[in-house]
Nucleic acid binder design. Sequence first.
DNA 1: GCATAATCATTGACTAGTCAAGTAAATATT
DNA 2: AATATTTACTTGACTAGTCAATGATTATGC
Lengths: 140, 140
Amino acid sequence: MNSSLKVLMNLSKVQAVISRRFDRLNIHGIGFNDFMVLYLLQQSADEKMRRIDLADKIGVTASGITRMLLPMEKIGLLTRETNERDARVSYVVLTPAGKQLFEDAEKTAKILAEEIIPAGKSKNMNLLSDLLIRLGGDIT
Amino acid sequence: MNSSLKVLMNLSKVQAVISRRFDRLNIHGIGFNDFMVLYLLQQSADEKMRRIDLADKIGVTASGITRMLLPMEKIGLLTRETNERDARVSYVVLTPAGKQLFEDAEKTAKILAEEIIPAGKSKNMNLLSDLLIRLGGDIT
DNA sequence: GCATAATCATTGACTAGTCAAGTAAATATT
DNA sequence: AATATTTACTTGACTAGTCAATGATTATGC
């Protein structure tokens, strides 16, 4: 049977298993997608991003990001900021608490990530990295 | 920052986007995970599998598979069968309706899969396939 | 300059799972 | 043989999203 389809099925399975493994750790109380949000904010120039850009980067819908961010705002990891030029947009801003939590969580996340995809075998990893970029993975 | 972690984040994003694209098609009324269930049953020797084995193959939990299969049984794509040697297990059996739906859905799924990962560039695809197998993707 | 279209974000109603706990049966231990 | 452990599956309570529709604002075409 069609190989592309099999690859897609394996991609789905692998991702499901990995993300459950991450979420089970419950790194400092946040899930893997939440972790990605913190990562993206922390590495962005001024530690803020538009909600829609965050959504696109992590691969959820606009309504998905609204729902994801709510509890993170509630526990003080993020705050809102308006854009003066465009009243439609609302920025997501990383708080010091959010930054601190990210730094802690990152340590645990790194260890698990290395366990799953050993960076030692770098040839494979660079390959996988390239292939994912071609498939739309634009997180750097 | 750690590359393994970035690869995992991109894997998550790519998979989210792809599976949403699939599910949006709503191929013959089923989602991508449902499609995988039908695929696995159809290619298994006697068109039946234990629930736990299905769960493991597609990467969901035991309770996840229970919840997934319910609506599929309700609309007549699957039925149950007991194991006479072991009263704990309950087989999932593909019905003729389920088989028919799979065959229809497969056509659409193949087209979309090729769109996402062109099989023409087979070098890349074989590579990706191998890497996914190493990460636990065991769907053949 | 006004109507039309596009963009950003949210909400209601829903689906697709998760985990933790529990039931029941089979296996292993002693 | 009796007990303890493991395995298969289900259920209750919940989380994490989805889509479709809506509100509000900004950009575009004529």
